[in-house]
Computed example of a mutant assay.
Amino acid sequence: MKASDVVMTPIHKEGHIFVVIFFAISFGLFFLSEPLGWIGLILTAWCLYFFRDPERVVPEEAGVLVSPADGTVCAVTEAAPPAELGMGDEPRVRISIFLSVFNVHVNRTPAAGEITGLAHVPGKFLNAAATEASEENERQLIRMTTSEGHDIAYAQVAGLVARRILCDLEIGQNVGRGERFGLIRFGSRTDIYLDKGLEATVQVGQTMIGGETIIARKTA
């Protein structure tokens, strides 16, 4: 954790109340024990770091999708899209990205287009890196038609520690590629289901930068 990352990078509005709470607790701990107070300040710095919301340089290349989140690709497989979105049961390529508590947790739209479906599904809080997390954990599902006509879906998936998913999207809303749309608190996973005519360009273990890393391209 760099000091400049904590001090200079803006934080997401969702983090303001947590920073205030952490700082207030730290201030109180100093009256009990100076070492505890310093531990509290370190945790306050971590809270600032967790909610950081850096600017990103979004690729302008036509026909590509960008990662919806920071993190590490934990799976590239085939799976049917979420039934709640009404996209049929034919398997699609699904790219899964695991976010640790040290990753930026602000989510970004993978492509420009129109939001055509939303569904929130209650569920468990299993380890977000587990394969079954995509079907069993609490999740927010999003369907969209890209500006190039592709019907894709992506999901914010809660994890072992994450207990709240924020999604600011609305059906019928038009969004740009790499646009901020939500946040998952604290540690989680995102999935993206590709359409035919799109090919994954990432591998398991690869590090993602939300809004910047190209994860799929239109096939020739």
Rank of each mutant, 00 (worst) to 15 (best):
G15W: 04
S4R: 15
A62M: 06
L32D: 04
D89G: 11
F98W: 15
E138P: 13
G176I: 03
S96F: 08
L160C: 09
K124V: 06
E136G: 03
D53S: 15
G205S: 09
H105V: 07
V73K: 02
A128H: 05
V76N: 02
H120K: 13
E135R: 09
F125W: 06
N103F: 06
E84K: 09
G63S: 15
E136V: 15
A200T: 09
L166P: 00
V6R: 03
I25H: 02
L48G: 01
T219Y: 00
C167P: 00
E170H: 14
S33K: 14
F102M: 11
M8N: 14
E136P: 05
A111S: 11
K13F: 15
R56K: 15
R139S: 10
T44A: 03
R164C: 09
S33V: 15
A111H: 00
I97L: 03
E34K: 13
K2P: 02
I21Y: 06
G172M: 09
F181E: 09
A69G: 07
P91E: 07
R180F: 06
T9Y: 00
G113S: 01
T145L: 02
T131I: 03
V57E: 14
N107S: 08
Q206D: 15
R139K: 12
N127G: 07
E148Q: 14
A129Y: 00
I192A: 09
V76G: 06
A24V: 13
E55A: 14
S96G: 05
I184K: 03
E84S: 07
A62P: 06
D5Y: 05
T190G: 10
M144F: 01
P91V: 13
